[in-house]
Design a protein around this nucleic acid. Structure first.
Lengths: 150, 150
DNA sequence: GTTGAAAGCCGTTTACC
DNA sequence: GGTAAACGGCTTTCAAC
């Protein structure tokens, strides 16, 4: 189980993965070598999944978020497999959830502009049978973080 | 503007930021030093926003995603500021969007369980006046990526 | 068994072509 | 864009507690 120091290390690294072991050690009042062993253990035990670079969307001209609400009438494993494969294969789909309630699936899609979304949409409905699809555009992203509340 | 090599570098780094400069260089058919200069430039120009560690949710017992659909009746800057400050301050809110359509705002909230969501919910409605709030729980996360389609 | 210091090693970074 | 050398941090080992 994790103690307070492990949690502090995780908080630091999910905020900034470029921190040197030494810098992390200082912030948690440890010397480098026990701190290094803890980080190693957190990786081995799977608490740290990966380290990635987060890009800026504005200069890449990927400013548009679209939420796609999907209903299906085929509630079986085969359909779910096909649908899952389709969303995994489409790089515009950043997130996909199976939902409770009257919407069956929810996607967050990132595209350059409305035209690009239209192309995405046509591709999606051509790949999988969907009973009902409704799209909502985000006007503004107020918050986006990858930092879990540990 | 970005050429094909810069885009390839961005794709590699947003997938795995632990790649050494040498490893990236090999994959894009460059030697380390021009590759290093390109990465440096991509950071200076703001294409690379930051490098972070992504944690696993299961061992941290943060398995529940809740989408919160919010309507307000106060469409003014002051209210929006208060709302934005509230969601920025609440670590359970991973994403927040101002939407088009009949829902005004959409949140993705990550919590340990339903009880934790109830506590979050009470805290949220006590902080800001909301006309209508409806919550939808995700049964399953089919996809989650931070990799933009560059 | 755990911590801290010290040393080798490897990747990053810079100067120069 | 490439080469080569200096630099700094990561990783490991070992002694001390």
């Amino acid at each position: 189980m994790l103690d307070a120091i492990d949690r502090a290390i995780l908080r630091l690294l999910q905020h900034d993965a470029t921190l040197s072991v030494q810098a992390v050690a200082e912030q948690v009042n440890l010397t480098t070598s026990p701190c290094w062993r803890r980080i190693q253990a957190l990786e081995d035990q799977g608490y740290i999944r990966r380290r990635v670079a987060l890009l800026s969307r504005q200069p890449l001209e990927l400013g548009v978020d679209v939420f796609v609400f999907i209903k299906t009438n085929q509630h079986n494993d085969r359909w779910l497999n096909d649908f899952t494969e389709a969303v995994l294969a489409m790089p515009e789909v950043m997130e996909a959830y199976r939902m409770s309630g009257d919407v069956d699936y929810l996607l967050r899609v990132v595209v350059r502009d409305i035209d690009a979304y239209d192309r995405f949409y046509k591709q999606l409905v051509s790949r999988v049978k969907l009973a009902d699809v409704s799209s909502s555009f985000a006007m503004e992203q107020l918050k986006y973080t990858t930092e879990l509340p540990v």
